[in-house]
């Protein structure tokens, strides 16, 4: 079996989160939610420890992680960009917005830029359909985004735009 390598911080965090849910396996989704919030992503080793702490097979944890698009096994960029592809956003041109992000960042959906500054994801409805199409950068919501706004949004990000143009 592969050895699990985790930092002490990650180990403590996972154990604390699991303890806060009384190691209840029914809280798996909430546990993963909090662990991802604290550690940024859910690599295999993290899932192994969650499985041990909740006393469930790691196969089940992995099943849940791969089922919900919110969960990620890859580290996210400093500025995680999520383009809503829910029905309302989609019909108002979210796909073109997403394509523009891909073009400018030179990464695909689910990837992180080489310098770790940006990651790009598509997600389902964020509940702001009135603002469609919606883009989230971290916790910040941008509404009625058009492809021409993409450059500005990237430039607004604290560490500047990667595309240099």
């Amino acid at each position: 079996m592969p050895k699990i390598k985790l930092s002490e911080y990650a180990t403590t965090t996972i154990k604390e989160v699991c303890a806060s849910f009384n190691h209840n396996e029914g809280e798996l989704i909430n546990v993963l939610h909090q662990v991802q919030h604290k550690l940024g992503y859910l690599p295999a080793e993290v899932q192994e420890l969650v499985a041990i702490e909740l006393n469930i097979p790691v196969a089940k944890v992995y099943g849940v992680v791969t089922f919900y698009s919110f969960f990620t096994m890859l580290p996210q960029g400093e500025n995680p960009i999520s383009v809503c592809m829910g029905t309302a956003c989609y019909v108002r041109g979210a796909e073109q917005v997403l394509d523009e992000f891909r073009r400018q960042l030179k990464i695909d959906v689910g990837e992180t830029s080489a310098d770790g500054k940006f990651s790009l994801n598509a997600l389902r409805c964020v509940g702001a359909c009135g603002l469609a199409p919606v883009v989230m950068v971290g916790d910040r919501v941008h509404g009625r985004v058009s492809p021409s706004d993409v450059k500005k949004i990237l430039a607004e990000c604290k560490d500047g735009c990667l595309t240099h143009n």
Binding site: P57, A59, G63, T66, F67
Partner: peptide
């Protein structure tokens, strides 16, 4: 109670698989 197989992914790509 061996716990090797679980459904993973969703929709069209859903399948039963060992972890990872």
């Amino acid at each position: 109670t061996v716990g090797v197989l679980s459904a993973i992914n969703r929709g069209f790509m859903a399948v039963v698989s060992p972890p990872f």
